[in-house]
Amino acid sequence: METLTQLRDRIAALFPAADVVLATNPSPSAQHALRLDATHARAIATFLRDDPALQLDQCTNVTGIDWPEKEVVDVTRTTVPDPAGGAPRVVEEKTRRIEPGRLEVVYHLYSIALSHGPVVLRLVTGNRTDAVTLPSLTPVWRSAEFQEREVYDLFGIVFEGHPDLRRILMWDGFKDHPMRRDYREPDDYEWEPTPHGDVLAKAKQHYPAPAPSAPSTP
C-alpha cells in the first residue's frame, strides 16, 4: 500500500477543496491518521472504499475521544550568543495558550480484499457544546451503524445522515453523555476498603474521618 503521505496527496489532488491533514502518531505503533474535514468526509470515505488500489472495505472500529479544554505551555528555546564572548546561553520562553475543547471520532479501516491496513481517519467537531455535528459514515460502511450510535450515546456527537440515531447503551430518557470527561455520575457512593484517587475524594466527602483521639482499631 502507498504511504499515508502519498495517500494524502492523492486525496488532495482528487478533492482540492478538502482539508486533509496528516496526524502523526509518535508511539511505536506508528499508526498515523488522516484528519478529514466534515464537509468532504463522506466523499473521501467512499473514495477510500472504492478505489481499486485501496479497497478499504472494512471499517473495523469507531471510537469517540473527548478532549476537554486545557491549558498547554509551549516552550521555545532560543540560543543567545553571549555578548561577552563566552558560551552561548539557551533562553527558554514559555507561552501559555488555551487549547479549545473538541470531540473526535476515529475510524480504523482495513482492507479484507487486499489484506492491508489500518488507515485511521479522524473527524473533529468544532467544540464540545453546540458544534457537535459530524457526517455519519454509516452509508459507506454498515459496521459504523451501532458504533456511531454508541459514540452518540456516550459522547454526544450527532451524526448527520445516520439512519437511526438513538441511544444504544443507556436508556432513552437518559440526558447525559457519560463518557465525557466532565460527566459526574449520580451520587451513590458507598464505602470501599481501598479508596484512592477520585474514590478517595468521594470517601472523604461521604464518611467522616475518625476523631484524632479515638484509639485506632486494629
Binding site: 458507598e190 464505602w191 470517601a203 472523604k204 464518611y207 474521618a209 475518625p210 485506632s216 482499631t217
Partner: peptide, 11 residues
C-alpha cells in the same frame, strides 16, 4: 440509608 461508617486511617 447507607451505613454510617467512619473512614479508617492508614496505620
Amino acid at each position: 440509608k447507607p451505613p454510617e461508617l467512619v473512614r479508617p486511617t492508614k496505620s
